[in-house]
Amino acid sequence: MKSKLILLEALRWVSASLAVLFILFLLGSTPDPEIPFETVEQAALARLDLSETQPGDATMLRRLYGLSASDFAGMTLYYPASNMGAKELLVLKLADESQADTVEAAIRARLQTQRDSFDGYGAEQFALLTDHAVVEIRGVYVLFAVCENEQAVRESFLNAL
């Protein structure tokens, strides 16, 4: 009886300590939410060729992604300037990280809609959307980019965090 209780108490302490260590590890690997949105936004924009795109506002964010700009702490959107364009950039700062799933699903839905639009119709755009799209969520910062050098944009975004 006594040894069983000692064993159970040990299990309680070990699991509680592991949970604390794990939370500390998670905190260590999460970006600082105090990094200004402008820093992250500029880092992503610096590597992007903005030709063939136009800046979007809250209405376009709602129309293209079904998201409300007022739900976020920061938003930058560049979307195709013509119907035959596929290049796109979205940088968001979430109000809190619980929004991450919703935002990711909205981005995936947007990407799928774009792919469906060009499937069997615009081979170049379809390839861009299939092979050169990147979605990155780190802490409260979100990047979605569709462009030829999407990895460079991603790296620049990550370096800013």
């Binding site: 108490e9 509680a16 592991l18 939370i23």
Partner: peptide, 19 residues
Amino acid sequence: VLMLCALAFNYAAGRELAA
């Protein structure tokens, strides 16, 4: 990892409490 820790912690606590 967190869920498994919570499960182990509370399972042990439950057995201890019953005893």
